[in-house]
Design a protein around this nucleic acid. Structure first.
Lengths: 238, 238
DNA sequence: CCTATGTTACCTACCGGTCGGTAGGGCGTT
DNA sequence: AACGCCCTACCGACCGGTAGGTAACATAGG
């Protein structure tokens, strides 16, 4: 790591390892994925893999930092220049939902799911990076509240409601469902930040001007169908 | 199992095993918890534990069904009699948030976290129980939308927004944070289902009846503080 | 009353296999 | 010659799960 301009694949191999192991860990969970499997997926032996990484937990830590980099590039950096706090939140929600649904970054999903897997300093470091996002959202909510652009809400509650709606999506979204990710993004944005019909009377930007966008009804995007009861029913012991 | 009226503790022992193992699995994750540890926590040997259960996956399945029972008793059964759809949703959100924050049922948290751990029939069975809840929410949203009691929204998007806000709480709530669980419940309920001020012809109609929790400096509810950088920073390989 | 017979609830001891991780060597490039 | 890269071979610990035995207790027959 002395200077730049090494081989054509510089850190490419390492990046490939992160992405490959992220794919596996995303599918099977951190504890449920063995180093054997990760090495095989990288078309290496376990010892070969350990040439590139220190240990399993450091690998997870690297994956999560990689995921935070992707998030900041794909979401945060694209919206933090927006002046209007409501527009900032709307754009942020949209980008964040699409980041989850598109699934290009398994690393991001791992950050969401393995929120309590890391320990010690690594855990604290990732948490601190997450907290910067929470702070960003809280400030936007505070500004929007103060400006009367949204219904007044405690900024922390606003931020975590935002995050819950957006991030929970990874648990239920199916790309081939009734609702496209675009529809979900639009629907959630309109739900939390209703579009305002400008200047209902004049000057007064309060909630008086909340108007509604026409929308269809119907159901059916997610989860599984019903199935005959397996081995044991609810309360009885097998 | 010839007839009823057995020993005083009937299935008590089994229930205790479920609760004890739920506590451990909730702390360490399903894959991260060994049967050895579970048995020890039950003050048994592993073979003794296996006298009561079939295998590890069936144990998880039993825990999740137990959790669904608790949920239906503590939340669903208490609100599905409410006629007004908005009041039904408000009460449901409140009960569900408190079910998560109070943490009396680790089984419920396991259902939330281990959403993709089970496979096959057991997975489908739990998913079907979850789907009943989604259906319940979608119907309530559809009713509330149709009655003009809330801003029109696709019922599926409404239901999963609701669920995201409510269930994500398990990932960040700390009992000793700035916000109590009651405050969070109230705040989120008012955010998604604003109390209507009937016949507000002047002033700011929407904002008049709700107030924000007095706000201390900083954010304070969640995650961790900042910490010196551990072994490796963002992009560099260790 | 006292056995015979099950049944329940656990134990010790052990299974084959896999876990995360490492030592040390070969080999191609510089 | 030296280095990066990846291999074979192996480590001790632990994994989920089981075989087989035993102490405690309940019931039924005599």
């Amino acid at each position: 790591m002395t200077h730049s301009g090494r081989k054509p694949d510089e850190g490419e191999r390492y990046r490939a390892i992160l992405e490959t192991s992220a794919r596996l860990i995303c599918e099977r969970g951190y504890e449920g994925t063995s180093m054997q499997e990760i090495a095989a997926a990288c078309r290496m032996t376990k010892a070969g893999l350990y040439h590139h990484i220190q240990n399993k937990e450091q690998l997870l830590f690297a994956i999560m930092n990689y995921g935070m980099d992707v998030f900041e590039e794909q979401v945060l950096s694209r919206v933090q220049g927006i002046e209007d706090p409501v527009e900032r939140l709307r754009a942020c929600m949209r980008h964040n939902i699409l980041l989850v649904t598109r699934g290009w970054s398994k690393e991001v999903i791992i950050i969401l799911h393995e929120h309590a897997t890391l320990t010690g300093e690594a855990r604290a470091f990732i948490d601190a990076r997450k907290k910067k996002y929470v702070d960003f959202l809280e400030e936007a909510f505070a500004q929007a509240s103060a400006a009367g652009r949204i219904r007044p809400v405690d900024p922390t509650i606003g931020a975590f409601s935002f995050l819950g709606m957006v991030l929970w999506v990874y648990k239920w979204f199916k790309p081939d469902g009734r609702l496209s990710d675009e529809q979900i993004a639009d629907g959630m944005v309109d739900m939390l930040f209703p579009p305002v019909v400008a200047a209902a009377t004049e000057g007064q930007p309060g909630t008086s001007s909340l108007r509604v966008v026409p929308r269809a009804t119907g159901t059916g995007a997610a989860d599984a169908a019903s199935v005959a009861v397996p081995g044991a029913a609810s309360k009885e012991k097998p």
